[in-house]
Nucleic acid binder design. Structure first.
Lengths: 129, 129
DNA sequence: TAGCAAGCTGGAGTTGCTCCAGCGCAAGCG
DNA sequence: CGCTTGCGCTGGAGCAACTCCAGCTTGCTA
């Protein structure tokens, strides 16, 4: 698989994918004889997970730690499970932020609507004089 | 109100609040004679909104645009409402990311649990030989 | 009156991208 | 056969949004 395909499937830019390799957030990618990257399906899986975790705010440093455990095989599964569960808690926090923001936005928009309605009422025109 | 109080109430660091003023994301804050910032309740409101929008990924550039409209009074209310509604759409997208990530995490954790259970079964011990 | 907490400023450092110039290679086309 | 076009590569600069720090002032308190 070439880089544009991976980019399309995981939803990150080509530059970002190269950056991930450079900074060690993913294992080194195999190269064709001319130096182009050739991704395995397993590589793709990794980028899909990576993208989803980054979408929800996991720092790449923690992803590196995760990648490190992964390299050491099944013995680290308990640790990895713990890391994913920790991210689950983070998701809950983000959900709160989302809900709070929605509520705040709702109130603001409602207030704006009230003001705009008032523009079309006599009471408002009176106040102008 | 002093800066620590605002920091506590809007959930951003003191440095971040100063940075927001420096970069024009909020109106200039009044100063006490000795140069310390003194925040009005309206200032606080602004930071609370700002924090909520930043928590959910609104870029500060758009916040500056919003601040600009705000400075021009009620005539810009329709535009401001539109901006907030646009952010609402962004929230929905984030919600999708969250849900997708939760699903992915759930699948991964489930698989880890299966592997860990297998460690305690004879079938696994057999495979070792 | 000394010491400590809380504030200030300017500036450097960090994270996570993003963009760009300049190059190689391979395919298609006139 | 040479030429253009497209895709890929690298190294390095630039950027957003913080974050941290040194070095200073001011105010309270023991």
């Amino acid at each position: 698989m070439k880089i544009t395909e991976v980019s399309g499937k995981c939803g990150r830019s080509i530059d970002t994918i190269r950056y991930y390799e450079k900074s060690g957030v993913c294992p080194p990618i195999a190269r064709a004889p001319d130096g182009q990257r050739r991704f395995t399906p397993e590589n793709l899986d990794w980028f899909v997970l990576l993208a989803s975790l980054r979408n929800t705010g996991k720092p790449t440093a923690r992803m590196k730690a995760f990648a490190n455990l992964y390299r050491h095989g099944d013995a680290t599964i308990a640790d990895r499970k713990e890391m994913l569960e920790a991210h689950g808690a983070h998701l809950d926090q983000q959900q709160q932020h989302l809900d709070q923001c929605r509520a705040l936005l709702g109130r603001k928009i409602e207030r704006y609507e009230q003001i705009m309605e008032a523009w079309h009422e006599d009471s408002y025109r009176w106040r102008l004089w």
